[in-house]
Amino acid sequence: MNQAGGPTKISIRGLHKAFGAKKVLQGVDLEVPEGSSTVIMGGSGAGKSVLLKHVIGLLRPDAGEVLVDGGDIGHLHEGDLNTVRRQFGMSFQEGALFDSMSVFDNIAFPLRRHSGLDPDGVAERVRECLRIVNLHDVEGKMPAELSGGMRRRVGFARAIALKPRILLFDEPTTGLDPVMTALIADTIRALTEDETVTALTITHDLQAAYAIADRIAMIFQGRIVFCGPPEAFQTNTDPVVEQFRTSNPIGPWTEAEL
């Protein structure tokens, strides 16, 4: 079993990010041990996606640092960043498929660029990835022909194609039916069985979160207000955590909106 005891893989310290006057992250601190599976939860617009994009260097911090294997991602030159990104796989909230390419080409894209596999090897891996997310007969389709849930799963397949060491999943289960949600959760769990694979997943689905997570982190008002194993999450009495867990319409989340 993965325990949250490995060496630190990703370390986020005092991360601040604002867009114009809107302060999204206001001092996020999070340590992610190697081989762990961390789930990030929080309301819509809490800044989960923004946080994830900092981890892979798509956004630059205003202040604070993001260390991956001890190296600061936030201030790397774009060229070096591209090298660091080889060990990452990321799936996006809406799939972010390349609209001008077929499903097959989308998943083959990272393989052709970086895997060194021959065309047969690429094709085989593409099919394998599609099987993992339980999609059949879609290889030749264009992204526009797929439903939102299918696109998200293709995005997921594309993210894991290169068997990266660090996996970032932005809401991979949103909009999926319960069976597919369980399947994706199981897949993430299985991927992180490997001691060297670290995963950060965003989800709103408590069931999926319990299935995926070694640790659950909750982001609220730009900070991490809770981080601990699912058991601790289930018994935590912090009103922020409690409201979220019990789907209560009244509490700090809804007050914060006002």
Partner: peptide, 8 residues
């Protein structure tokens, strides 16, 4: 963003 995550 996806393109950049692939280092391109």
């Amino acid at each position: 963003d996806a393109l950049r995550t692939f280092g391109i």
